[in-house]
């Protein structure tokens, strides 16, 4: 049983005549205990995908199955089921905690809202959660304004863990933190994953973070997944030119020869608008290797090595795959 199974998800915003195509035919599957990283530039559809999984946005097409239950329709019962199984750690630990509430009430909110336990059992659960995210008990009565960014993000993690979710979404959980604090929040997440075995989806455009926090990576471009594979596969041999461009943009310490701009794999120009997606391969205007077929036909997904798929005309399919 997969924790999450998305098949052919699409989502359009705006009007029918001028649709903003935020997601186009996205299929994803997350198994129990798996950690999936989703990378992509701003506007690639990462946030829309997360909102669909959380029950905050409906799909235009496709089905969403959560723990073998079809929750595509987002009925009231579906949403209750989703909120009981999926929780989220937000990007901005400043605005994701209500400044007027005490830490203990913030962490207890999912328990209270979903009617879990009695006041006493909830209070002891909150104390345990503070322990497990490495915050001292004296923070119970503090307010978010009294905590540092890293501490606040730990409160956000504790809140997300309160109802023991099966799936944890992490939206750039470290983006607004200092580098030193980032590392510790990441270690916390890795530790929690090892102890609790919760499936995690981490959305990030920080490839360094994804490398540590994910077993598998999905690369998104203009609402599509252009490449998926294990973290090892993608970091060792990215197949799609966009993935290659992303990974070649990671600065490496001591790598004197490579300077930004010289590398031929770097993507040129800006990401196109989801209002006006290019014909053929959506990446072709920026692709250094684009040929005439890329301008006319949309590429299908091909398996380049076991478990690694890319949507590109130029990659060689693995022997034996269709």
């Amino acid at each position: 049983m997969s924790v999450l199974d998305l098949t052919h998800i699409s989502r359009n915003f705006g009007t029918a005549s001028r649709p903003v195509r935020a997601l186009r035919d996205v299929s994803l599957r997350i198994e129990k205990g798996e950690r999936l990283g989703i990378v992509g530039e701003s506007g690639s559809g990462k946030t829309t995908l997360a909102r669909i999984v959380l029950g905050l946005t409906r799909t235009s097409a496709g089905t969403v199955r959560l723990l073998d239950r079809d929750v595509t329709a987002h009925s009231a019962a579906d949403r209750r089921f989703i909120h009981g199984a999926v929780q989220m750690v937000f990007q901005d630990p400043m605005s994701s905690l209500n400044p007027r509430k005490r830490i203990k009430d913030i962490i207890a909110l999912p328990l209270r809202a979903q009617g879990v336990g009695t006041a006493a059992t909830r209070a002891s659960r909150v104390r345990d959660l503070l322990d497990s995210v490495g915050l001292p008990q004296r923070f119970l009565n503090a307010r978010p304004g009294q905590l540092s960014g890293g501490q606040r993000q730990r409160v956000g993690i504790a809140r997300a863990l309160a109802i023991e979710p099966q799936l944890l979404l992490l939206d750039e959980p470290t983006a607004s933190l200092d580098v030193s604090v980032q590392a510790r929040v990441l270690e916390l997440l890795v530790g929690l994953q090892q102890r609790l075995g919760i499936a995690q989806v981490m959305i990030s455009h920080n490839l360094g973070v994804i490398r540590h926090a994910a077993d598998r990576v999905a690369v998104m471009y203009l609402g599509q997944i252009v490449e998926t594979g294990t973290t090892a596969q993608l970091y060792a041999s990215p197949a799609h030119p966009y993935t290659q461009a992303l990974f070649s943009a990671i600065p490496r310490v001591g790598d004197k020869k490579r300077t930004l701009g010289e590398d031929h794999t770097l993507a040129r120009g800006e990401v196109a608008s989801a209002l006006n997606i290019p014909d053929g391969c959506p990446f072709h205007p920026r692709c250094p290797r684009a040929s005439h077929i890329c301008r006319s036909a949309e590429p299908k997904q091909v398996e380049v090595s076991p478990g690694q798929f890319a949507r590109c005309h130029l990659v060689e399919p693995m022997a034996g795959s269709v």
Partner: peptide, 9 residues
């Protein structure tokens, strides 16, 4: 013992 350590600011 907890990965990430106690953030004890």
């Amino acid at each position: 013992p907890i990965a990430g350590g106690v953030e004890d600011g």
